[in-house]
Design a protein around this nucleic acid. Structure first.
Length: 265
DNA sequence: CGGCATGTTTCGCC
DNA sequence: AGGCGAAACATGCC
């Protein structure tokens, strides 16, 4: 479930780390560069930002490194000072086993305490998440939360893939995952399998508007599972929350799409 | 036990 | 060459 909305929740939760110095690091070398330890110990966290689904820690005094990037994959979650801002990840284990920690960072304030909570833990059972140094975002599309109609139109120009596949392509729009993509299509009234070269100008406008209006609303309510198509409704598609027509489940781009054939065209 | 799952990367085919 | 779809990745859970 970690989509851009979850990354934004974690970014905000990580703000208290700003100003702290990294004292100790442990990584799972299968998902993180081994040199991270010698490069980052002694560095200071000077900012926390987000691009799409990636949380970024801006560093000062690190060795040949500006930024630490956290990619959560399908089941990664962030724990800051022992607190998980998102306790339950949909489709992921509810457990939090230490053996699933892929990155641990201790800072000076966290080493002090008797209980010694780790300042930052990336806990990921399925190990599809990644830790990166100075990640390259040159190909990344505009962020979904602030997407403008013209930005979307520009990124879709010359393409013919299904609109849902386009929304999930991070080089077209950054931050949307499977749940948010379905939610945006539901609000915009666009069928997920529609090829993008057949979309009208009004469709593109509606898609961008659905992103700008619905994604922040979902963020306030708790993330990508806080939409009209909640996980229960996805699992056993009931009726469309807008018009009551039976919802349909289909596979597009290898992912499950839930949509309403009545009003999504 | 088999099937399914939020994401990204890789492969092979036009 | 590059767009696109399918498969692969890894692993827990129902």
């Amino acid at each position: 479930m970690p989509e851009g909305l979850e990354a934004e929740i974690w970014r905000r939760a990580a703000m208290p780390l700003i100003g702290r110095t990294i004292e100790c690091i442990r990584v799972d070398e299968r998902v993180a560069p081994p040199e991270i330890e010698c490069r980052l110990v002694g560095a200071r966290i000077v900012g926390v930002s987000r691009i799409g689904k990636v949380v970024l820690f801006d560093l000062a005094d690190a060795v040949e490194t500006e930024t630490l990037g956290l990619h959560f994959g399908m089941t990664g979650r962030l724990i800051i000072d022992g607190v998980a801002p998102i306790e339950r990840l949909e489709y992921a284990s509810a457990a939090d086993r230490p053996k699933w920690d892929r990155l641990r960072i201790w800072t000076e304030t966290s080493v002090d305490g008797a209980s010694e909570p780790v300042a930052l833990r990336l806990n990921d059972p399925r190990r599809l998440g990644r830790v990166s140094l100075d990640p390259d975002f040159s190909a990344m599309g505009p962020d979904a939360l602030t997407l403008r109609r013209n930005e979307l139109a520009g990124r879709l120009r010359g393409r013919r893939l299904a609109v849902k596949s386009a929304l999930l392509d991070q080089t077209i729009v950054a931050g949307l995952g499977n749940l948010c993509a379905d939610e945006v299509l539901l609000w915009a009234g666009v069928a997920p399998a529609r090829p993008v070269d057949e979309l009208t100008g009004a469709d593109v406008t509606a898609l961008a508007q659905a992103c700008r209006e619905q994604l922040p609303a979902m963020l306030r309510r708790g993330g990508s599972t806080a939409g009209r198509l909640d996980p229960e409704r996805r699992a056993a598609p009931g009726r469309c929350p807008f018009d009551g027509a039976p919802l349909v489940r289909s596979t597009i781009g290898g992912r499950t799409a839930v949509w309403c054939p009545q009003h999504q065209r």
